[in-house]
Amino acid sequence: MDEESSVDDAVVDVNGTPITIGSNVRYINTNSIGEITDIKTDDEGTWALLDTTELYYRVDTLQITDKKASAGKEYTISEEEMKERIKKQAEDIQSSTLEEVFQATGGG
């Protein structure tokens, strides 16, 4: 019985899996992924600090994951890719007519 009470005192995720500093977790409301760098408890519950967002989350909203944050690499694009995107947007805007704009907004 003593083991059960010590397990109850452990910091656990939404599924009951133990969480420690260094654990990789996913915030279940936004799918943010990060590594826990701090854990603290106050009157409102137990909180874990994610390195990627630099925010504290209640541990009952976190889930242990094997995935690791990409440190922003997934959003990195080259200068050439950015120029192409801007060119494409400009072409799309030029091909739009004023009539199409009014139809999309429901005006008549």
Rank of each mutant, 00 (worst) to 15 (best):
E35A: 01
M82F: 15
T53K: 11
T52W: 00
I36N: 01
R85A: 12
T37V: 03
T65W: 15
I39A: 03
D43M: 10
R58G: 05
S78V: 02
K68P: 06
T61G: 13
E81I: 11
W47F: 12
I64Y: 00
T76N: 10
I36M: 05
Y75W: 15
T46F: 03
L50Q: 09
D42N: 14
I64N: 00
K40L: 10
G45Q: 12
T46A: 01
I77N: 12
I36G: 02
D43C: 11
A48L: 04
T41I: 02
R58E: 04
D43F: 08
Y57F: 15
T61I: 08
L49V: 02
L49E: 04
E81S: 12
Y56E: 11
L62V: 08
S70F: 09
A69T: 15
D51W: 07
G45C: 12
G34E: 14
D43P: 06
D51K: 04
I86Q: 08
T53E: 14
S78C: 07
W47C: 07
K67M: 08
T61D: 14
L55W: 01
V59P: 01
D66H: 11
K68V: 09
L50K: 13
E54F: 10
K40S: 06
I36F: 01
L55H: 04
A48V: 05
E74V: 04
T46C: 00
D42S: 10
T65M: 08
W47E: 01
D43A: 15
E35D: 00
R58S: 04
E79C: 08
L49F: 01
Y57M: 09
S78G: 06
I39G: 01
D66A: 07
D51A: 07
T65I: 08
W47G: 03
G45E: 11
Y57L: 10
I77H: 08
L55E: 08
D60R: 11
E81M: 08
I39D: 04
G72N: 06
T46M: 03
R58F: 08
Y57T: 13
E80F: 03
V59L: 12
G45M: 11
